[in-house]
Computed example of a mutant assay.
Amino acid sequence: MKWTEKVSMRLAKCLKTEETPHSLGTLAHGIEIFLLNAINLAALILCSLVFHLFREAMLLFCFFYLHRLFSGGVHLRSPWTCLGATLALMLGGGYLLKQLPVVPAPYAQLLILAVVGISFRINYRYAPAEHTYVPHNPAVQRRSRFILLLLIGTGCFFFSLLVEYIYQTSMTYALAVLLQSVLLMPRTYRFVSRLANF
Rank of each mutant, 00 (worst) to 15 (best):
M1I: 13
K2W: 13
T4Q: 10
E5I: 13
E5R: 12
V7M: 14
L11I: 15
A12Q: 10
C14W: 15
T20D: 14
P21N: 05
G25C: 01
T26N: 02
T26A: 06
L27F: 06
H29N: 07
N40V: 07
A42T: 14
A42K: 06
L49P: 00
L53S: 04
L59C: 15
L60V: 08
C62T: 14
F63R: 06
L69N: 02
G72F: 03
P79G: 01
C82F: 10
L83Q: 10
G84S: 12
A85N: 01
L87K: 03
L87I: 12
A88P: 09
M90C: 05
G92D: 08
Y95H: 00
Y95E: 07
L97F: 11
Q99D: 03
L100G: 04
V102T: 10
V103I: 15
Y107N: 00
A114Y: 02
V116Q: 03
G117R: 14
I118P: 04
F120T: 02
E130Q: 12
T132M: 09
P138A: 13
P138C: 15
L149H: 05
L150G: 08
T154I: 14
L162S: 08
L162D: 06
E164G: 10
Y165C: 07
Y167R: 03
S170R: 05
M171T: 05
A176Q: 06
V177L: 01
L178F: 13
Q180P: 01
S181K: 05
Y189H: 13
R190N: 01
